[in-house]
């Protein structure tokens, strides 16, 4: 008896983590679409690295596929990283800026 209930709870908890917080019907469509979009975007981005070298592109695409499967609800991470918290934005700005400088100065 108990096992079925706990299975139900497990499934419920698993599905609940897709919809962080604001769960109601019209949000759900948005989150699922965004999840699919985000994974496809990730794959396309990975394949873009072929302009530097084709093997790198292939490896990145495979890594991206693995990443999409392992870190399943991507959109939750994406939403968290897109918060307007100042420290978070500052962190990403510093990272971007360092990449820009590293690539332009020592990239050749």
């Amino acid at each position: 008896m108990g096992s079925i209930e706990s299975l139900y709870d497990k499934i419920k908890n698993f599905t609940a983590q897709f919809f962080g917080g604001k769960g109601f019907s019209s949000t759900m469509t948005g989150y699922t679409t965004a999840e699919l979009q985000a994974s496809v975007f990730l794959l396309v981005l990975a394949s873009l690295f072929r302009i530097f070298s084709v093997p790198l592109g292939i490896i990145l695409v495979i890594a991206a596929i693995a990443g999409v499967i392992v870190f399943a609800p991507l959109i939750v991470t994406l939403e968290r990283e897109n918060e307007s918290d100042l420290n978070r934005v500052l962190f990403w700005v510093v990272i971007y800026f360092a990449i820009i400088i590293a690539v332009t100065m020592w990239g050749r």
């Binding site: 400088i101 590293a102 100065m105």
Partner: peptide, 15 residues
């Protein structure tokens, strides 16, 4: 994250 940010700041500093 802090370590990452520190490395990034170091790169910016050197540049």
């Amino acid at each position: 994250r802090g370590v990452l940010a520190a490395v990034a700041l170091l790169i910016i500093f050197i540049g």
